[in-house]
């Protein structure tokens, strides 16, 4: 982050904290709102939350690394989430993930493409089990997929 971006992040975080009345019990909500804005939790924001809520930084990070909804890494321009719920698993979600990793050139354990264009994540269940297997691209749900459909879906992002 540049100096200006950092300042902005702090300012935005202050607004979020204030909207909750700076209460300790809203730590998770505050982090959710920050994540909503940046798609990840920038370090200056985490430090600011710690300071303003009077919660130690390790405790803030403990929460931020515990819940699946948070990420400490910036994500790419497009977010692809593959549902790995049970119904999707038995209907072939692992094959969708393999195909996506191959098409996007992602190594094992790598989430975001080197050009920061795509981030691939697995989610537990988007609750559309009857359309399994399912993935979402920037929030839009695509259902009843086969690995062969992946290239078309990716093309729509360009």
């Amino acid at each position: 982050m540049t100096v200006a971006e950092t300042e902005n992040a702090i300012k935005h975080t202050d607004g979020v904290i204030e909207s909750y009345g700076a209460k300790r019990c809203d730590l998770i909500h505050i982090l959710q709102d920050v994540q909503e804005e940046y798609d990840y939790l920038p370090r200056p924001a985490l430090e600011r939350v710690s300071e303003k809520l009077n919660v130690s930084l390790p405790e803030v990070l403990r929460v931020a690394t515990f819940y699946a909804a948070f990420s400490l890494e910036p994500r790419g321009e497009h977010l692809i989430t593959v549902c790995t719920g049970t119904a999707c698993h038995v209907k072939g979600a692992p094959r969708l993930i393999d195909a996506l990793q191959r098409d996007l050139g992602l190594e094992e354990g790598q989430e975001t493409t080197d050009d920061m264009k795509f981030t691939l994540r697995e989610v537990r269940c988007v609750g559309c089990c009857s359309l399994a297997p399912v993935l979402t691209v920037d929030g839009r749900i695509h259902g009843n997929l086969a690995p062969e459909d992946i290239s078309d879906i990716l093309e729509d992002c360009f």
Binding site: S56, P58, E59, L61, R62, T65, F66
Partner: peptide
């Protein structure tokens, strides 16, 4: 408040921020 747990499951560990 210098150190804390990070992560969950088998990936959990103790670390400084």
């Amino acid at each position: 408040g210098a150190i804390g747990f990070v992560g969950r499951g088998a990936e959990r560990r103790v670390a400084a921020p």
